[in-house]
Write a protein that binds this DNA or RNA. Structure first.
Lengths: 223, 223
DNA sequence: CTCTGTGAACGACTTCACAGCA
DNA sequence: TGCTGTGAAGTCGTTCACAGAG
C-alpha cells in the first residue's frame, strides 16, 4: 500500500488486533512518553524494541494493525505516534472514573497521581461503611452506594475501579452496570458476571505474587 | 499411563508448562478454595470450568502438565487438588515479603489482608523519606533503605513488592537483587533491568485502565 | 455410562525475510 | 544504505474427539 489516503489523513485502521497486541500498545505508549521526556523525536522499531525487550518486527507488525505510521529509512516520529496511540486507546479524551470501595486500596488509588497523567479523572468514591462516607480522600469525596447511580449518570462515568471484598464484588458490579458503566477494573478476587458489551480487567494481587512464587521455587528445581 | 507410581505418591510433574497455564493455576486455586468454602468436595472439569468461563478440556489439559489428579468417571477432589496446586505454586510454605516504597499504594498493600491467606507474610517496608521511616503501618515497620540488605538477609526474603516512583525503580531493584531477592512485583511504571534468574511481575494500573478504555471506545465503533 | 488424560487437528500469535520506498 | 510494511513460515497454545479407567 503506497501513500494511502488513510496514511495522509492520519487515520487509524482497526483490523481487530489480537488482545496481546493491544496490551503492548500501552507498553509502547509508556516507552514513547519516556523518549519524549528525553527530547528524542525519532526512533527506529529496532531501537525502540530493544528498550522494551521485544523485537523490531513485533513492534512494526503491532503498529501495522492500525495503520502506517513509520517512515522508511528513518523510523517513527515519537510525538505523532504518541498522539496516534492515545487516539487508538481512547485516552486522547479524558475519562471520568469512580472507585467503589474506600478501604486501604481504594483510598490509595484515589490518591494515585498516575491516572490523571494518562487521561483518567477520578470523580467520586463509594462505600457502604457510614464511617467512610462524606469524608474526602485527597480531593475526592466518598459517597453512599445509593448515590452511585446518580453520580455515574451526572458525570457520564464509563469506567469504574472496584476495590471491595470478594463477597461484595458481584452486587457492586450489578449496580455499576445498571448505571451505565462499560468497563470495570476489578481488584476483588472473584469472577464478575457482566452483561455483554461490558469489559472487565481483573487484577489479582495475591495471584501475581503466586506467579513469582512459582518462578522462584521452580527455578530452584531446575538449577 | 496407568496408575503410575507418580500418581500414587501424589508427586508432581513439571513439564515446563506454558506461562498461560501457570497463570490459570492461580485462578484454579482461587476457584477451588471457593468450592471448599461451600463444602463441595468433588468437581468435574466441566462444572469447574464453567464457573471460570473456560472449557473442561482446558482445565484437564492444564492440570495434566503437572500430573494425574482426577478420577475417571468422577472428577477432581477439591481438598487434595488445593494442596497440590499450592505445592506446585510454592505457596504451601510461607514466603517472607518486603515492600519498598511506603507511599499511598505501599501502605495500602501493607494493610491488605489477602496476602497472608495466600501464604505471603509482609515482614518490613522501606522508604527514603525520613518522615515515613520508623513509623508502623499496621504491624509492619518502615525502615531506611540502608537497612534493606540486613533485613532481607535476616528474614531470608525472596520476594519484594516495589511501589516507588518510576525514576526510583531501577536503583531500588539493584539493591533488592544484590540482597538476594529473586522475585519482584513491580508497580513502578518502568521496565526493570534484572539479573538472570530473577523474576519480575509488572503491574501497570494506568495501563489496565487504558485497556478498558480501548475496549469501551472500540466497542462503540463496531456496534 | 461418566469423566479423565491425551494425541491430533486447528487456530492464533510471533518471527522471518525480503520487496519496496526514502 | 537504512528502515518500514507485510506475506510466508514457524511456533506455541487451545480445542477436538476419543480411548480407556472406574
Amino acid at each position: 500500500m503506497s501513500r494511502s489516503r488513510l496514511h495522509r489523513a492520519g487515520g487509524v485502521r482497526n483490523n481487530n488486533a489480537p488482545a496481546p497486541v493491544v496490551k503492548r500498545l500501552s507498553l509502547y505508549l509508556r516507552g514513547l512518553e519516556k523518549l519524549a521526556d528525553q527530547k528524542i523525536e525519532e526512533v527506529s522499531s529496532q531501537q525502540f524494541a530493544r528498550s522494551l525487550r521485544l523485537t523490531g518486527a513485533q513492534v512494526r507488525k503491532d503498529l501495522a494493525y492500525f495503520g502506517q505510521f513509520g517512515r522508511r529509512g528513518v523510523g517513527y516520529r515519537v510525538g505523532p505516534l504518541i498522539e496516534t496511540l492515545r487516539h487508538i486507546l481512547g485516552t486522547d479524551k479524558t475519562w471520568n472514573v469512580v472507585v467503589v470501595g474506600a478501604g486501604n486500596l481504594g483510598r490509595a488509588l484515589l490518591r494515585y497521581k498516575g491516572f490523571a497523567k494518562k487521561g483518567f479523572r477520578l470523580v467520586a468514591a463509594f462505600d457502604i461503611a457510614e464511617a467512610k462516607v462524606s469524608v474526602r480522600v485527597g480531593r475526592i469525596r466518598v459517597y453512599r452506594l445509593k448515590d452511585l447511580d446518580r453520580i455515574v449518570r451526572k458525570y457520564a462515568v464509563k469506567l469504574a475501579i472496584v476495590t471491595v471484598p470478594a463477597e461484595a464484588g458481584q452486587s457492586v458490579t450489578d449496580i455499576l452496570c445498571a448505571a451505565g458503566v462499560m468497563g470495570i477494573l476489578n481488584f476483588a478476587p472473584t469472577m464478575l458476571d457482566i452483561p455483554d458489551g461490558v469489559a472487565v480487567a481483573p487484577v489479582d494481587l495475591a495471584a501475581q505474587l503466586e506467579q513469582l512464587s512459582f518462578q522462584v521455587a521452580g527455578a530452584k528445581v531446575k538449577g
